[in-house]
């Protein structure tokens, strides 16, 4: 069995089996802005327990027998959906995947009607991806099932941010004071938004870097509604001493919408290359939520190089989603 990461420090003093009630308040996972640091800690710790299950020859525990998870994806996705599906199966939950393109949605059924149908079919947890920001939030007000946001518009992708944090913890002792640089299409990235919330809550020093057309306005001013991050358009400055460098997928249609002169120019100025990485900390790790446009936002030698943890992110994603399923459905939640 592989050695566990640094977060598996066994502290028996703090090890009494206790209800998570005092810490865990969530019925839905919509975004990370309303998570407390101790809730994030609880997710990380539970994820570590789930990660151990993934290293076993039989990757299955009976914990959520009889619970039903439904995935409802209004946008194409294979990796995220498979990750949720495997996570549910590893916990022995039943899962049903609703493909919107071949369902009654094409016959004009509304979102709320679809959700109510899912609930009538017995869903305990609904995993939802939707092109409109806020759709999972709306959904959570209409159903008794727990909603997990698997990405909504430009708004949030909380499970991705949690798996990113878990991956960082596998390599770094603590998130506090960690220098994290996020490079790429920040303005359209729900991954970046959720990561900024979770990382700043845990005390990381976050820098975002992109051409100014791909940076949201006002990010460089401390504001009451969004955490403070460093903003720069200079990739060399952003790279300096970074402990973690995260690339984001460049949506190729951004060029057509006039935000970039050309993809080639973007790659020349903002691609994560070996040379640019040399300015980062010597133990830097390189992350990317995938799918990767190789040699656009990240050089293929970097994406497949020894600093890249991109494939581990995928494995950790299954563990994080198991942890969230467990925390949402592992009790009756009657207070």
């Amino acid at each position: 069995m592989e050695a566990l990461g640094q977060i598996n420090v066994i502290d028996l003093k703090d090890d009494n089996p206790q209800p998570a009630q005092k810490i865990w308040k969530h019925k839905h996972i919509l975004d990370l802005d309303d998570f407390t640091p101790s809730e994030i800690d609880l997710v990380m710790q539970t994820t570590d327990a789930m990660h151990e299950i993934l290293s076993r020859p039989i990757k299955k525990v009976p914990t959520l027998r009889g619970k039903t998870v439904v995935t409802l994806f209004y946008e194409a996705s294979t990796r995220t959906r498979s990750s949720f599906e495997l996570a549910a199966k590893n916990l022995s939950a039943d899962i049903s995947n609703l493909t919107v393109s071949s369902s009654s949605v094409t016959k004009g059924e509304s979102l709320i009607d679809t959700l109510e149908t899912m609930e009538a079919l017995g869903a305990d947890i609904i995993v939802m991806r939707h092109p409109n920001s806020g759709a999972p939030n709306l959904a959570s007000k209409h159903v008794k099932a727990s909603i997990i946001n698997a990405g909504d518009g430009w708004h949030a992708h909380p499970t991705q941010a949690l798996l990113d944090m878990y991956t960082m913890l596998k390599y770094k002792n603590s998130i506090k004071n960690l220098k994290v640089t996020i490079i790429g299409d920040i303005i359209h990235s729900r991954v970046a938004h959720s990561n900024i919330w979770s990382l700043t809550k845990m005390g990381a020093d976050v820098t975002i870097c992109a051409p100014s057309t791909l940076l949201p306005k006002g990010m460089d001013n401390p504001q009451p509604y969004f955490p403070k991050v460093n903003v720069t358009t200079d990739i060399n400055k952003a790279m300096k001493d970074a402990d973690v460098v995260m690339g984001l997928r460049l949506q190729l249609e951004r060029q057509q919408s006039g935000l970039l002169p050309s993809i080639r120019e973007y790659a020349r100025l903002y691609q994560i290359t070996e040379e640019r990485l040399s300015k980062a900390d010597k133990d830097v790790i390189v992350m990317h939520p995938g799918p990767v446009n190789e040699d656009v936002e990240i050089a293929s030698t970097v994406a497949h190089g020894d600093k890249s943890v991109i494939t581990e992110q995928v494995t950790n994603g299954v563990a994080v989603r198991m942890a969230l399923f467990y925390l949402l459905a592992g009790g009756s939640h009657n207070e």
Binding site: P19, A49, S332
Partner: peptide, 20 residues
């Protein structure tokens, strides 16, 4: 904890730690 028979009758989930 993941094998307990009372997991869904617990009001709230128990904190899970790693097996090693």
């Amino acid at each position: 904890s993941l094998y307990r028979d009372d997991i869904s009758s617990q009001d709230i989930p128990l904190v899970i730690k790693s097996t090693n």
